[in-house]
Nucleic acid binder design. Structure first.
Lengths: 336, 336
DNA sequence: TTGAAAGCGCTAACAT
DNA sequence: ATGTTAGCGCTTTCAA
């Protein structure tokens, strides 16, 4: 069967020193040159690897941050994770990444999984359906909320101003003369999307554009439902001249629907999407999008979690609001 | 500061039983009803969470699989991880996901990190530059290779036949009458890409098409270098009529280059890409691609790792070769 | 059914 | 500079 793990005890025995000396050597504390050599040789020949689990049990430190995201399929979160990992790594921390697949029950389980793994901190983009649990855990383990911000949770957080993002998305279209504007949203799924939705509505109101519920499509964040919802809206006889699509994956779905119906962007339908600058550039025509600075978001989350680890969980709560960018492509037609 | 963790000892004390009884209760072993009640109540009021780390130290089981991928930015790996996580979860296992950002040094570190975390298994898409380390670890921890298969590593593995994939990609173009075909590759970076490259070359040879090194662009897997490489090739005076692009991210780069040069697909340039069926459908025109069945790959990796955990590391090595699909879009022009 | 006690691999006083 | 030892939170015999 598999080789059994080598322990420090065996290394110590082979090197002819005590287990404490090996531990000290591993910690970079000075040991006699001869011992150093013998320990190094023993470690090499035995193939010893320090058991970080046992170590952490004693030190109460794992140098590991648990990260929980809604899905591995959202490019947005993957980019955040990528920059977050960079940030942590540079400071001697690693990350263990989990996803809850947009399921609140699964989120609950994964929160336990991570918390019980003795991580030094938790970063979570929550459904908002497990606030009690997160609240409880956050009293024992430093916790930072990211992107999705459940109501009334007094914890460090990083996000953009989603209301404003929704507002600005609509405004881009309104300023180009559009008044018949549809929205593809998923307000039920995440507060992020709900706020964008609210911002969108507010922009219409502020410009005296009447809200037509029929022009608002609901999906579950993924591209296929967004495609169905878009197809429905775009097939109405009073078809909107423009669409705001409230996240990246749904933007993909909306474009699929547009293609399927044989419509042209922006001639037949203008579109303002969200996220993924790279891709917005290869889609023809280049998309006008609200771009969240994923790199900054990831780094900020990393900074907050390491800072929080040094402080009382109930003091100086920081809500970092990151500025989004507007990327102007060619997917919006000037009307009038 | 943060609340201190509640231990089993405290639960036992509050419930007026021994720590062993609490442990048994937690394991679902029968305890007296009255004790059961009191333990449950204590756990609830104290907010006790079992320390899985300490538990694992004793049981030598973590029900956790470590997964190491080259990057969080490759959609391909994220989809594999997603299906892998589903598979494991259904069987009581969790996954901790790490990335090494395409850096062999980082791969080495992350391998240690994961191995030292007492995971029950490791799934890795390796650079191929740390074979000794993987070899060593695999003798102590069940290990499965995925996608990228370093030469001569006798370990369980899952992948497609990349040589054949490269061959077929070229063949699609050849059969439509193309003889002036370019390739955007990254043969240095991963054996996967090298094999696709070799398959591509073989297809040209088998059809008596001369290989022009000038028509082979090298990048580092990401879209921006692929864009530069594509631009160069497409700016030569004897411009190829078609391009094979050996992975998804580079396909994005190639399309960016094509757009930038003002060329039309497929009128001016035909293209066969790799991966990401969803996206190939929203790009206009719909792309012809070689599609790797990510779901199957993830599940197969999950199955292999759980099987391997029960067996000797040196017996019955399985190399699972998954069939790829060819998705015909409209990005290839029929010549002549 | 329950509890006492040894020990998983490691660290950190403390003593030498 | 090194070794002895208690103990991190938990499981698991073994005896009661």
């Amino acid at each position: 069967m598999f080789d059994k793990d080598i322990t420090m005890r065996e290394v110590a025995k082979m090197a002819g020193v005590s287990i404490a000396t090996v531990s000290k050597y591993l910690d970079g504390i000075k040991v006699k040159d001869i011992n150093k050599e013998r320990i190094e040789k023993s470690i090499e020949t035995l193939g010893y690897r320090r058991n970080e689990i046992a170590r952490g049990l004693k030190t109460r430190k794992s140098y590991t941050i648990g990260v929980l995201v809604p899905s591995f399929k959202h490019v947005f979160f993957m980019e955040i994770i990528s920059s977050l990992e960079d940030y942590l790594q540079a400071r001697g921390y690693s990350a263990i990444i989990c996803s809850y697949k947009e399921s609140p029950e699964e989120e609950d389980k994964k929160l336990s999984f991570i918390a019980n793994k003795m991580v030094d901190g938790i970063i979570v983009a929550s459904t908002g359906k497990n606030n009690d649990k997160i609240e409880k855990i956050s009293r024992q383990i430093p916790t930072v909320l990211i992107d999705r911000l459940p109501e009334g949770m007094e914890l460090d957080s990083v996000s953009i101003d989603n209301f404003k993002a929704g507002y600005e998305a609509a405004k881009i279209l309104i300023e180009k003369g559009h008044t018949n504007i549809g929205l593809i949203s998923a307000a039920e799924v995440a507060d992020t999307l709900r706020k964008r939705h609210e911002g969108f509505i507010q922009a219409l109101k502020d410009n005296n554009i009447k809200i037509n519920e029929k022009k608002i499509g609901y999906s579950n964040l993924n591209f296929s439902e967004a495609m169905t919802a878009s197809q429905k809206i775009l097939s109405e006889k009073d078809r909107p001249t423009a669409l705001v699509v409230a996240n990246y994956d749904m933007t993909i779905g909306a474009i699929m629907a547009i293609n399927k119906l044989g419509l042209q962007i922006p001639e037949d339908i203008s579109i303002v999407g969200f996220d993924n600058l790279e891709l917005s550039k290869i889609i023809k025509p280049e998309l006008t999008i609200i771009e969240q600075p994923v790199k900054v978001i990831g780094e900020t989350a990393g900074r907050l979690i390491l800072e929080r680890a040094k402080k009382d969980p109930r003091t100086e709560i920081k809500h970092e609001v990151i500025q989004f960018n507007i990327h102007n492509g060619f997917s919006v037609k000037q009307l009038k």
